[in-house]
Simulated scan of single mutants.
Amino acid sequence: MLGCPCCDSAGRRSLLRGALGLGLACAAAPAPAQILGGAPRRIAIQRLQTGESFDGIYWQDGRYDREALQQLDWVLRDPSMEEATPMDPRLFDVLAAVAQRMEASEGYEVVSGYRAPETNAARARESRRVSRASLHMSGMAADVRLIGRESMGMARLAAEMQIGGVGLYRRDGFVHLDCGPARRW
């Protein structure tokens, strides 16, 4: 019988080494907020399915603008369910940081934002490429195109930045960006 990794000393040491390694990895990667600095943060997005858009400042004077976040939540809602959820504001920081590094003045086209669990489950049944534990269901991910930019270049730059998850869907012409742990596929 295996012991609990938190209770036996060998497991505890292994767990602590793993936590330390994760902490060092996180400390080494810059947070999107560090990249963006203290200036007002702006984002421009258009939801392809609805035609709705947001173009404005979502963070200034050291805090997120609650009204702007509510507008972004609605634009990024699950259009098949007409269901919105509070999106993680760090996602907007990731999007803004990538656009800034690409020196893009154009906005994002959003292919997919928040997904209700039912929508995600239906998509997972249709395609092996859809995770059953997708961060889209937590309001932490968006599948996007940056107008006028190659998806491969955007994915490569975002992966180098190590500020969240990056998935390149070359055939479909979009990039998955999220504010979860840095990883790529």
Rank of each mutant, 00 (worst) to 15 (best):
V110N: 03
A158S: 06
S127A: 08
A39K: 11
R17M: 11
I35Q: 11
G113L: 07
G18C: 09
E83I: 04
A25M: 09
E103C: 12
G37Q: 01
Q70K: 14
A10G: 04
E150N: 15
G113I: 09
A155D: 09
Q49S: 15
A96K: 06
D55T: 08
C26N: 12
I163F: 07
S112D: 00
L15P: 02
R63V: 01
L2H: 08
E67P: 01
R47H: 14
R47N: 13
F92S: 02
C26L: 15
Y58E: 01
S134D: 02
G180S: 10
S9V: 11
P89H: 09
V175W: 03
R128F: 12
R170L: 11
R17V: 12
I45T: 01
A19I: 10
R149H: 14
E150P: 08
E126V: 01
R125A: 12
L16Y: 09
L20D: 08
Y58L: 10
S112H: 05
G148E: 05
R123C: 01
G38S: 14
R17I: 11
R90T: 07
G51S: 06
S9K: 14
S151K: 10
L91H: 06
M152A: 15
R101S: 12
A142W: 01
D88S: 13
A97R: 08
A182Y: 01
F92L: 15
V94N: 00
A124S: 14
M87E: 07
G180E: 02
G167E: 06
A10Y: 13
D88Q: 09
V144K: 05
L15G: 06
P89T: 07
M137W: 03
T50W: 04
V110M: 02
A25C: 11
Q162C: 14
